[in-house]
């Protein structure tokens, strides 16, 4: 780890000013990803601007019944917040499915969104990786990739985004707010993560030097009937090999509204819009759920060793939507 400067920011404007346009400077939140990457040599910042104590740690219900979450809210506080648990239970479940109690106490909402991939070639500086060193190649495509992307990847990169939280946020149309030296801005989560293409090193739509200040969840009554399910290679404290966030409103056997997002399948949380379109207004049956998943996964381009993710996500879709149907129809009776 190289030597670096450290500054603790007093306020948002100060933080943005401290970082400036320095490409070698990084914001430090909980540090759970950045400090690890600094130890492995993937990140070698010259300056850290500590934003952990900025007054961005609030969670509040917005006037229209949505939720505003500050960027420095810890994962733990987000998951435990009564309004999150009541209005967006899948978000609580997603956050609690990630990492460990200790890490969730440290990790922030802003940092969680900016997590880097856990691809073993990205985290080993001795290996080629287009995301880490543009143009160096992708070792995963022909190497170990059983937990890599099946959707939206390219010849240049097949890494997945590791966040669970972001999968639920994708289902709930979160909008990311940020601050730059030129003032505030915002981006819907749907546009926040850039397509991989031939620039896998460019991961988000944040302008240079921008600081995430928080996010807004629009009101979504359907989200009160939502769940998150994560499959991984041990029962806890592991990244997903496939996950799903789903919210469902069913009346009299008909899907009135549905939200569906997949995790661990792409370089971003994958909003399953094709599946949603296929389902909306149709019957809430296992056959329809499977057909909808197939519609979404038709675009999948599995590699030699990760094709199992297609049936996994299909099965998860059927299982979770069936559970939600039973729960909501049961509650309605």
């Amino acid at each position: 780890m190289r030597e670096f400067g450290y500054q603790r920011a007093e306020d948002v404007a100060g933080a943005v000013a401290l970082l400036g346009a320095d490409p070698e400077a990084r914001y430090l939140g909980g540090g759970t990803n950045l400090v690890d990457l600094m130890k492995t040599g993937v990140e070698r910042p010259a300056l850290l601007v500590d934003v952990r104590e900025l007054p961005l740690d609030g969670i509040e219900v917005t006037a229209d019944g949505g939720l505003r979450v500050g960027a420095t809210v810890t994962n733990s506080d987000l998951a435990a917040h009564p309004e999150v648990r009541r209005r967006y239970p899948a978000l609580t479940q997603a956050v609690l499915a990630a990492a460990s109690g200790q890490l969730r106490n440290m990790a922030t909402v802003g940092g969680n969104l900016l997590q880097r991939t856990r691809c073993g070639y990205f985290t080993d500086p001795a290996r080629p990786c287009n995301k880490r060193v543009p143009g160096s190649g992708c070792a995963a495509r022909d190497g170990e990739h059983h937990n890599h992307a099946i959707l939206g990847a390219s010849d240049h990169c097949v890494a997945t985004h590791p966040s669970d939280m972001a999968v639920a946020l994708a289902a709930f149309d979160a909008v990311i707010a940020y601050e730059t030296v030129d003032g505030p801005g915002e981006t819907p989560l749907a546009d926040f993560y850039l397509p991989v293409g031939d620039t896998p090193h460019r991961e988000t739509a944040l302008p240079p030097g921008a600081l995430i200040t928080g996010l807004t969840l629009p009101p979504a009554p359907v989200a009160a009937h939502s769940r998150y399910r994560k499959v991984r290679e041990r029962a806890s404290y592991a990244f997903a090999i496939g996950s799903i966030a789903a919210a469902l409103d069913v009346r009299d056997g008909v899907v009135r509204e549905v939200r569906l997002a997949y995790g661990a399948v792409a370089s971003r949380p994958w909003r399953a819009r094709a599946a949603e379109r296929a389902l909306t207004g149709g019957p809430a049956t296992a056959t329809a759920f499977a057909a909808a998943a197939d519609a979404e996964l038709a675009a999948a381009e599995p590699l030699s060793d990760n094709g199992y993710k297609v049936p996994l996500l299909r099965n998860l879709t059927v299982a979770l939507l069936s559970e939600l149907t039973e729960a909501t129809e049961g509650a309605a009776r």
């Binding site: 430090l28 952990r52 733990s76 200790q102 106490n105």
Partner: peptide, 20 residues
Amino acid sequence: TVLVDGRRSLSCLQLAVAAD
């Protein structure tokens, strides 16, 4: 694992300067 401000945290990912 240690407690930082009463909460369990991983001291290996916590920079000392940020724990000031």
